[in-house]
Every structure is written in structure tokens, then in C-alpha cells.
């Protein structure tokens, strides 16, 4: 059998990669290109004809004040959530790698929120905020306290709190892997050279864990930026649309208000913003990475 003919190569390729190629194209490539086309039409979601409207959807996307306030809100939310997730995750990872008894139990325990979908988690926390915290507030003040979820700033705070709680365990696992990858001999060498434990942490361990930071920050940014499930179940964008994140706005624009063209254009803008932030972050973090 000849191994460098086009017929042999394409047969081999299709035999092994054919199913993957078809599904990948049908689910990602075709919709992506078709989505680009949709941004130039004003489609109502029902009719067969999709009138061509040029850049009108992008113009209305740029003029859509609700969209930009949702994007600004998402950036604010992501900034808080990403920093807090990583700080909490790093501290947890530090504690569960310090050699205390039962550290595997704690690692497994902190990971639990990641096992459960955002919808269910959101409703669990909705109960905690609306009932349990209110009951505690009532007892402390003696009067009736409003739920945090019913105040405009409070809803954002709740969303950030739940996200930190949800993702910290997952990021912790990555930081744990980072801690374990730094060999003890390097830390010991630093201590013998006169470093204190905290200096060894700052000057030896953390620089060698830069890859973990890069990974965790990238994952938390990309996840926070398109947050939807928890947003839907915990706040539904309420009160008064004050907690509508960008992904929810895009969903509502397209599927609730049936403005598919503008919704798709806004989704694309969201993707570009997200990609730029992601690329910049990875670029700057990679620059600072060192090897042992």
C-alpha cells in the first residue's frame, strides 16, 4: 500500500478525524460564520427571510446604553471576583499544603461547590440570602431587615460572594498543584541562606508558581466574564436590571426581545473584549514567568 498518495492520506484522515471534524464544524465553525452573517441582517427569529441591513446592528449595539452598562458592570464584577477568588484560593491552597492532618479531606471539601451546577447553587444561595440572612438580621436588629438581594448594590455583592465561593475550591486545586511542584530543596536552600519562611514564600515559591497564577487568573477571568447560570438563578438581573451581566443582556436581547441581529452583534463585541483581556493577561503573565 502506498503511504504518500493523497487517496491514502485522505482515507486515513477521514477514518480517524472524520467524526470529530464533522461535529466540530457543525457545532462551532458553521454557527460562528453564520453568526457573522446574522449580524448584518435584521432577523426576527421566525420568518424565513433575513433582510440585509449592513452595519445597522453594530450601530444599534454601540448605541445600546443597557448593553454598555451591562459590560461595565461585568468588568467591575469580574475585577472583584477574580481578585477575591485568587486570593482566597491561594490562601486555601497554602493551608491545605502545609502538612496539617486531614488536608486531603479539606481539599475535597472545598471543591464541593464546583460539583454542582450554577442554577442549583444560585437557588441555594437565594434561600440563604432571602431567608437565613434575613432571619439573622431580624434577630440582631429586632426589626425586619430587607434581603441583600433586593437592594441594588447588595445584589452585585451577593453575586461576587457566590462566585468567590463557587470558584475558590477549583482554583485552589490548581494552586495546590503549583505548591507541590516547587521542590522543598529550593525552599530549604533559601532558608539556609538566611531567608525567613515568609521571605522564602515571596522570593522562591511564588515566583516559581507563576504558571499557576497565569492559569488561574485566565480561567477565572474567562469564566466570570460570561457568567450566566448563577446570574439567572440568584438575581435574574433584579432589582431594576441592576445585576444584569453582559451574557444575560445578550441572551435577553436575542431571545426575549427577539432582536437577533443586535443580540448577535453584541455577543461578538463581548467575545472580542473577552479575547483581548484574556490575551493581554496571558501575555503579561508569561513575560514574568521564571524557571527553576
Amino acid at each position: 500500500m502506498k503511504r504518500n498518495t493523497t487517496a491514502y492520506k485522505s482515507k486515513q484522515f477521514l477514518m480517524f478525524a472524520g467524526p470529530a471534524l464533522i461535529l466540530f464544524c457543525m457545532v462551532i465553525i458553521v454557527p460562528f460564520i453564520y453568526g457573522l452573517f446574522l449580524t448584518f441582517t435584521s432577523w426576527d427569529g421566525v420568518s424565513a427571510d433575513k433582510p440585509f441591513v449592513g452595519f445597522a446592528n453594530y450601530v444599534s449595539a454601540f448605541k445600546d446604553a443597557y448593553f454598555w452598562s451591562a459590560v461595565a458592570r461585568t468588568i467591575l464584577y469580574s475585577a472583584f471576583a477574580v481578585v477575591l477568588v485568587n486570593v482566597v484560593a491561594f490562601l486555601l491552597a497554602y493551608m491545605v499544603t502545609s502538612g496539617v492532618k486531614g488536608q486531603n479531606f479539606f481539599r475535597a471539601g472545598f471543591f464541593i461547590p464546583n460539583l454542582i451546577g450554577g442554577i442549583v447553587l444560585g437557588y441555594v444561595w437565594k434561600f440563604v440570602f432571602n431567608r437565613a440572612f434575613v432571619a439573622i438580621g431580624d434577630k440582631l436588629t429586632g426589626g425586619s431587615t430587607p434581603s441583600l438581594l433586593s437592594t441594588t448594590g447588595g445584589a452585585m455583592f451577593c453575586l461576587i460572594l457566590v462566585s468567590v465561593w463557587q470558584y475558590a475550591g477549583y482554583m485552589m486545586l490548581i494552586y495546590v498543584a503549583g505548591f507541590m511542584s516547587v521542590s522543598d530543596t529550593l525552599k530549604e536552600a533559601a532558608m539556609i541562606d538566611g531567608c525567613t519562611a515568609s521571605q522564602a514564600m515571596r522570593n522562591v515559591t511564588i515566583p516559581l508558581m507563576r504558571t499557576s497564577f497565569t492559569t488561574c487568573i485566565f480561567l477565572s477571568i474567562t469564566r466570570c466574564f460570561v457568567v450566566y447560570d448563577v446570574n439567572l438563578s440568584l438575581t435574574r438581573g433584579e432589582p431594576f436590571f441592576s445585576s444584569v451581566m453582559a451574557a444575560m443582556h445578550v441572551y435577553n436581547k436575542a431571545f426575549t426581545y427577539k432582536d437577533y441581529g443586535t443580540g448577535q452583534a453584541e455577543a461578538l463585541i463581548l467575545f472580542i473584549i473577552c479575547a483581548i483581556i484574556g490575551i493581554l493577561q496571558v501575555y503579561f503573565s508569561k513575560k514574568g514567568e521564571v524557571e527553576a
Binding site: I28, F32, F225, V226, A247, A254, Q264, A267, L270, F271
Partner: peptide, 9 residues
Amino acid sequence: IPFQVLMVP
């Protein structure tokens, strides 16, 4: 690519 870009198409 986030899912939001692909859901409408």
C-alpha cells in the same frame, strides 16, 4: 469562543 457567540446561530 464563548458560547454566547454561538447560541443564536
